[in-house]
Design a protein around this nucleic acid. Structure first.
Lengths: 349, 349
DNA sequence: CTCCGTTGCGTAAGCGTTTACGCAGTCTGC
DNA sequence: GCAGACTGCGTAAACGCTTACGCAACGGAG
């Protein structure tokens, strides 16, 4: 299969063309199926390329073709935290859809926020990517948003709300977390819960209001509300300790994310509280680890494949037609009941 | 800061050179600090570049410079599983070290093994990467290894043992898991354990023999040994169920990886076994989640930063000097005692 | 049979960099 | 005061690909 010699020199399109007795233009046309080429020559050339083990130099392709066939995925928050969960799940969803379009995915996993932003700028200006998917969490950074759109590159935002007005070359995938929370509240209400605690990530998180509205709609009140001021399990742990000092304890506890919930869980259990016998617990994002906790953590699932798919489709439309203004797409969440929220403390007695 | 206009056209080195009244060669020399250029002109130009917001086209750089300033990280196993843990931790360690060398990191997160290998081949032949770091888990695939080295690209293997003979343009970071297991066995022996069960990933895993030797050396025997034939928590779960059918139960259980241990834990607890009161449990890799389990999972820690650093240093040497034959580097693991293995069932009574 | 539209392919001009080479001008040592 | 080395910079040829343009061959309509 791999007839190509492994020394430093690699096969170029010119050599291949000469070997096949055609021009480089014809080989290029055969590869891409673009331009005027007879089907016979095309299949003939493609077969030969396979045999020779020729692979085009991607940099030369990008330079001459004026497109890089790659997109970047960027996360606004602290990636040291999210790398092993939300972002990876999303990346997998995005990449899965990108393959269909023969696009590659680039992610910068490390460094602080400022560093990652500078790298992204370098990628954009350096023509490394044709478009960007940005996860706006906890909220859209307006200043950065305008700086990014000023670069003139297609951008898809994954956010809770649609910004007004929407800039040029921009599209939005709205993650409707209200749906999943509503399901959760209906479930909790039916179990007998009326007042439930909430471990929030940040005071400024727009999700906070969304959750509160959903709770009110289903006859529940969020109280107390504690801000973890972070997104790690450790942050959840300390926030839960803080909450445990209040009296009386709520019958159920909600965490803004599973990652926070993991820490909350440990704090509760170290206090001798049994879940859900003494207090129920619900997380959000349904990370793969949620089901392996003890007890399995009830959570709200994000359809990462769907989310990635929508983002990619919007981005592809923005890339292919510069003047397109795609309508926002909405992706809903689902409540996944598990043991950690399977009963109500009072009722059980 | 960003004076560059955001429309489609971007600043080229030619335009910048003309604006500064110098040649493109001089600008290029100023950027890289290579070649003969006076310090004064260099700083002058660099300042102006900053002001203009110029960023070189990376594809043109790679094409003309004959190097891409990027390396790939590849994992032999099923990445759908490992993405959110081992690989991400390692990626972070690698990337951290790459930054110093102004190199970028590329990872293909999705697709099955065959697809990922074909993508890697495309990256190599397409000159997208200058080198590759391969995690050989569970063992080095000899056929693929020779196919990869035949591509003539620098490769660093992260493996348990050093292959003989070592091919050209190849280096090895040896992960010494014997060290961490030895610490674990010493600890367990002192607690009174003599016969411990082992949940292996695959029968062919070379780690199996290493663990067995370490156990023997510390007066323990591995029995029973159950192969999960996989690496997910779900695989660990079923393997543990299988093991629970054997009589008598060992006093402690070791899992090849934390991911397996997570599933084992749930299986044990569903059987009503308390950890560590009824049976002790130890994992391997010390994933960030280990400490958030209930009870916190005792594990064997891999120093990912160190591992990544070593791999990067070796790779850089291979890239810069084609004939270098760097000696293998060894990175040791450490046992991290936590509650899941803090006591011995019999002694406790 | 001619005219014109279409088809299949080759020629060559980019794409935006890097770098070998060459050429003044400046030092250094004797 | 001069040969030779060195310094700082510009010129222009790559790097490997895409694609606008042109040209010959062909086919159908009149």
């Amino acid at each position: 299969m791999a007839t190509q010699q492994g020394n430093g020199k690699r096969l170029t399109i010119r050599e291949v063309a000469r070997a096949l007795g055609v021009s480089t233009a014809t080989v290029s046309r055969a590869i891409h199926g673009r331009g005027r080429i007879s089907p016979e020559t095309r299949t003939r050339i493609l077969r030969q390329l396979e045999r020779l083990g020729y692979t085009p130099n991607l940099h030369a392709q990008s330079l001459a073709g004026k497109r890089s066939m790659a997109v970047a995925l960027e996360y606004l928050g602290a990636v040291e935290v999210l790398a092993d969960s939300f972002l990876v799940e999303l990346a997998r969803g995005v990449q899965q859809s990108l393959v269909t379009h023969r696009y590659r995915l680039l992610i910068n996993l490390s460094g602080d926020q400022e560093y990652r932003r500078s790298v992204l700028r370098q990628w954009i200006r350096g023509r490394v990517v044709d478009g960007v998917i940005v996860v706006a969490n906890p909220r859209i950074d307006l200043e950065w948003q305008s700086a990014l759109t000023a670069e003139g590159i297609p951008i898809v935002w994954i956010a809770y709300d649609v910004p007004e007005p929407m800039p040029k070359r921009t599209a939005v995938v709205q993650l409707d977390i209200a749906f999943g929370w509503a399901e959760a509240f209906a479930y909790l209400y039916q179990l007998g819960h009326r007042e439930v605690g909430f471990i929030s990530a940040y005071p400024s998180d727009p999700a906070l209001e969304i959750v509160q509205n959903a709770a009110r709609q289903y006859g529940l009140t969020l109280s107390p509300i504690v801000h973890a001021n972070g997104e790690t399990p450790a942050d959840g742990y300390t926030a839960a300790q803080q909450l445990l000092a209040t009296e009386p304890l709520p019958t159920a506890l909600l965490a803004r994310t599973d990652l926070l919930a993991f820490g909350v869980m440990q704090a509760l259990q170290q206090q001798g509280l049994r879940i859900p016998d003494d207090i129920a617990l619900v997380g959000h994002d349904d990370l793969p680890m949620a089901q392996w906790m003890n007890p399995p953590l009830s959570s709200i699932r994000i359809d990462y494949a769907q989310l990635g798919h929508s983002a990619v489709e919007l981005l592809m439309r923005l890339i292919s037609s510069p003047d397109a203004i795609p309508a926002p797409v909405c992706v809903a969440t689902r409540f996944i009941p598990r043991l950690s929220a399977a009963s109500h403390p009072q009722r059980r007695r």
